[in-house]
Design a protein around this nucleic acid. Structure first.
Lengths: 227, 227
DNA sequence: ACCTGAACACCGTTCAAGT
DNA sequence: ACCTGAACACCGTTCAAGT
């Protein structure tokens, strides 16, 4: 930025100036807009994504974005789906281990969203993009292969969806407010006579998010699959 | 609450009272602000709650609210917890049926949030108010009574929390955009070769939300409780 | 103690206009 | 085809001031 204006060279040819700038700032494109939006969301959260700020990062005027995109909502949709791509693991020789497969898919899904903590809370509110549909399709297949009857398949999928979405949104939110959490626990201890049970098990202090996710998922899968 | 204000014994006819109220609103109070915020949220959604609009409904200037409340965030917190109050059912004589109890609590929780579709997505992001803590305490007790070991109690509670939160947020969002849903299913059918499994089970057309919630919950409880 | 209007520092987006 | 600045119609909140 400072360098841009500090053209001590005096009146260089505007062509050189222009080409330099174009080297530094590649032209706008949907791809670049989406990638930068993800960066901005990662850095500043949902409320930090502003059209003007996004344009700033891209080195363009605020209104230029609107040629590539209808409105801010569309930026959210595109950023969200771009973050949900699933890279399947190298095909394990014997895919007989359906349960390991399901667990891997869901842990990966959760991990992808936690890498972008704004994403989980956005997902349920928006149209399902291709990447998330493809995750659901894979999940369906695995469960089907595991012997879940077609009549139970939708229930099984939505149950797992609910579990993952709920777990990830909760984890991402609590992550943001560790102080509040300590304060809440303190308040809880102070009121231990009103909430003796959750006080006793230290519900709000339990820090093993990954372990709890895995254990709960195992319980759910236990219930879901015919024994 | 109407009774509280109309406690002016033998003052004037109801008609006069009504016209008086239309001319001069009752004074502001935290209680009235919160109740009106809930009304506004129910009618217009999360984005519809604006300080100026809220003040309008209350018949006061926009800035008057700030004497009772620190900022808009606080309005959200108070509105949310006010909607989560749990009225326990008349104590069933024999509370041996722990499972029915748990199911009732969770269905009531979900129903309370669906009556105010903005509430579910707010819940995970905010500090836990007294009403939600009290729900967790009851849930803990019931599970404990059902024989869940203390070591598993937190996992069990968070699993159920995740399930309820995920289910309710999802249901509330899909509810708002029925058109999008039909469109999504149409797109899905068009791409049926890419998503054959979820196409076959009509995942996106499944309309039995209540039934799916109940069945999935049963599966989860099956896994959670020692057999 | 309680309420108010004016004003500030923002937003997303429309529009007419530039290349 | 692609980009722009000015302008509009909003927001939440600060402030000095009223009762």
């Amino acid at each position: 930025m400072a360098a841009k204006r500090s053209g001590a060279q005096g009146k260089r040819s505007p062509r050189t100036d222009a080409s330099l700038r174009s080297v530094q700032e590649p032209p706008l494109s949907l791809e670049r807009i989406v990638a930068t939006a993800v960066e901005l969301l990662d850095a500043e959260g949902v409320d930090g994504l502003k059209m003007r700020r996004l344009a700033d990062r891209l080195g363009s005027g605020a209104m230029s974005l609107y040629w590539h995109v209808d409105n801010k909502e569309e930026v959210f949709d595109l950023a969200l789906d771009s973050v949900l791509e699933y890279r399947a693991p190298p095909q394990t020789v014997e895919s007989q281990d359906w349960r390991g497969e399901v667990v891997h898919m869901l842990e990966d899904w959760r991990a992808s969203m936690l890498r972008h903590p704004w994403s989980a809370s956005l997902l349920p509110r928006r149209a399902l993009g291709p990447n998330i549909l493809s995750r659901l399709e894979r999940l369906s297949k695995a469960l089907s292969r595991a012997g879940v009857a077609d009549a139970d398949l939708n229930v099984a999928i939505w149950s797992l969806w609910n579990y993952v979405i709920g777990a990830t949104i909760t984890r991402a939110s609590f992550d943001l407010s560790d102080d509040d959490r300590a304060a809440a626990q303190q308040r809880l201890t102070r009121l231990s006579e009103r909430y003796p049970t959750i006080e006793r098990t230290r519900l709000l202090l339990d820090n093993d998010w990954d372990g709890a996710f895995r254990k709960g998922l195992d319980f759910l899968l236990d219930g879901l699959t015919p024994r």
